[in-house]
Amino acid sequence: MADTWTVLQSVAIVTIFVCGFLGGVLAKVSQRHAFTTQILNLAAGGVLLAAGCIHLLPDASDGLKDLHGAGDYPLAPLLAYSTFIILMLVHMLAEYFALNVAGKTEDRAELINSQQGDAAVASALAAQLASSSNPRRWASAIVLLAGLGFHSFLAGMSLGAQKDVHSVVDILGPILAHKTLAAAALGSSIVNAHAPNHVFYTLITLFALTTPLGSVVGLAISQFSDDMVWASAFKALAAGTFVYVAVIEIIPDALSVKNGLMKLLIQFLSLVLGFGLMAMLAVWV
């Protein structure tokens, strides 16, 4: 049984890495299908939202309710939404960093303008400055890598800490969906920064490795306890992570009113479909 469980975890880790890497490569080879990408992102957002709220959080609550000293305190929601708040803080700091770098770039362009006295020359030099180093786009790409990598690592820890097939199924599907689409978003950001091929593949590989590394750490931590406390705690962390990714990162960016009413309805139905299918899965797993 132990050997079978090791094989299952190993297959899950390899599959997550492959999905993460291929998602990034997909962004590099296909840049002209924005509406299709939005639909897929919204479906994934629905899957993540249902996975966090309907699958993981109730399971985590059941696993933690008998924890010694906890009483009737809702530990699972506390862990889940504390994770949500921490990820939001990381996001805010990342946005500040990106805007700060962008502001410095604009200041340098204004300095060029004041020194040259010719708006056309200043504009050309500023454009050359932006195209040569791409500071704002590089900042966005690195910030995105850090943010996505952080909650991918947390999701991996949650997967590694699980001790039964039912729990792995609950977490693995949403992780695969999110990993692929997150890697595609990261890949697009790196491509927009005009990164050389070796830099592109290095960054995508690093991102693809974050969830497998988290799985190894979660598996190691879970070995300290024979009960389900660690697994339930990591389920709560995963629930908060999935809800954050869906509500803050995926759905607002992908659900666009600029595409017209019909496309907006198609996007919304994609979100509902992803949520509904994952919610229906709770009947069997």
Rank of each mutant, 00 (worst) to 15 (best):
Lys179Ala: 01
Ala193Tyr: 07
His151Phe: 05
Ile54Gln: 07
Met228Ile: 01
Val25His: 02
Ala98Ile: 15
Trp138Arg: 14
Thr105Asp: 14
Ala146Tyr: 02
Ser131Gly: 06
Thr211Pro: 03
Ser82Gln: 07
Ser61Leu: 05
Ile112Pro: 09
Thr83Asp: 05
Phe242Gln: 02
Leu125Glu: 11
Ile85Gly: 13
Ile204Asp: 06
Val25Gln: 02
Lys104Leu: 14
Met278Ala: 11
Thr202Asp: 01
Leu219Thr: 07
Leu271Met: 11
Pro74Asp: 07
His151Cys: 04
Ala239Asp: 12
Pro58Gln: 12
Tyr81Trp: 14
His91Ile: 05
Leu87Asp: 01
Ala94Cys: 06
Ile85Tyr: 11
Phe21Pro: 09
Val143Leu: 01
Ser189Thr: 06
Gly260Trp: 03
Ala246Cys: 13
Pro174Lys: 05
Gly46Val: 08
Leu271Gly: 07
Ala183Ile: 02
Leu176Asp: 03
Ile250Tyr: 03
Leu265Asn: 10
Pro77Glu: 05
Val143Ser: 13
Asn197Gln: 09
Phe35Ile: 13
Val283Tyr: 05
Leu75Ala: 15
Leu144Cys: 12
Val285Asp: 00
Pro58Phe: 09
Ala236Ser: 14
Ala98Tyr: 08
Leu40His: 02
Arg136Gly: 07
Arg137Met: 05
Val245Phe: 12
Asn100Trp: 06
Asn113Glu: 13
